[in-house]
């Protein structure tokens, strides 16, 4: 529905920009309320690579929960709020594949009958990047300069891998961290069973799915399971915490940022 403009050509070029880069942090409602460290880590990593980070504080939720459960009117309302908060220029970076997909792919559907909003949605949408995608594809980062240590397995979130086509970027970054040993799980791109409202409306199926996912995670013997989406981590983490499985969920941004200074010694 959107025509591609300059941002699309920027990413296609894959060139590291030479001019100073400004990015607005789309921290997501989940990180805001439940995992503020993930949003902080995202800002830390961006600043490490010279990005000027802006944080539009009027942002709330992109509207995905409403959209995904069919409440389009409410979703439009939230989407309009998001577009107001992020209208402008510069990149928009988020530590969430599924929130990026919501803005980039679903807003145009939400506003398909409102030409003016559709234009705005498209111009905002093409500025949106998921963190690992932004680091590798836009900034050309090869080494995230992280001091993180541990054996890590990566869960490909559905929206990141199938929605944005981001599969290699997080792996490249993880492999570049000297202290990280990346071990692949079987079917790493199989859904963990979260699915937002799905996990509430179909909890039994969701739980059976997350158990299957955890089986595969545990089979790798990794200490950490990471992902580019907080939803997945909340789901996996919820089951891990209830059953006491020996693995710790951690967001990709937190690994890239490295341990906080007070833990480093």
């Amino acid at each position: 529905m959107c025509e591609h403009g300059e941002f699309a050509s920027l990413i296609l070029g894959g060139m590291a920009p030479s001019a100073p880069v400004t990015a607005s942090l789309f921290f997501t409602c989940l990180a805001d309320a439940l995992y503020p460290n993930v949003a902080l880590a995202t800002a830390t990593v961006l600043e490490r690579f010279g990005v000027t980070v802006r944080v539009p504080l009027s942002q709330t939720c992109c509207g995905q929960p409403a959209y995904n459960s069919g409440h389009r009117k409410e979703a439009r309302k939230m989407a309009a709020g998001f577009l107001r908060a992020f209208d402008g220029d510069g990149y928009i970076v988020t530590p969430s594949g599924s929130c990026a997909v919501m803005v980039k792919e679903m807003y145009p559907v939400l506003f398909r009958n409102e030409p003016r909003m559709l234009d705005l949605a498209c111009s905002v949408g093409e500025r949106v990047f998921e963190l690992s995608q932004f680091l590798v594809d836009v900034l050309g980062v090869t080494d995230p300069l992280s001091a993180f240590k541990g054996k890590v397995t990566l869960h490909d979130s559905c929206h990141l891998v199938r929605g944005l086509g981001v599969r290699e970027q997080p792996r490249r970054l993880l492999r570049a961290i000297p202290g990280v040993e990346l071990v692949e799980m079987e079917d790493s791109d199989r859904c963990c069973g979260f699915g937002g409202v799905f996990s509430v409306k179909n909890p039994h199926i969701s739980c059976a799915m997350v158990e299957k996912k955890i089986e595969r995670i545990l089979a790798t013997g990794a200490q950490y399971v990471t992902s580019g989406d907080l939803g997945c981590l909340m789901n996996i983490g919820g089951a891990v915490s209830r059953s006491g499985y020996p693995v710790q969920p951690i967001h990709l941004a937190e690994i890239l940022a490295g341990p906080p200074p007070d833990e480093e010694t």
Partner: peptide, 18 residues
């Protein structure tokens, strides 16, 4: 309630990111 049948839910942060 179905969510927490076999999973925990994280408690909200006292100091949200904002």
């Amino acid at each position: 309630s179905g969510w927490t049948d076999r999973r925990d839910f994280p408690a909200p942060a006292v100091r949200p990111f904002r």
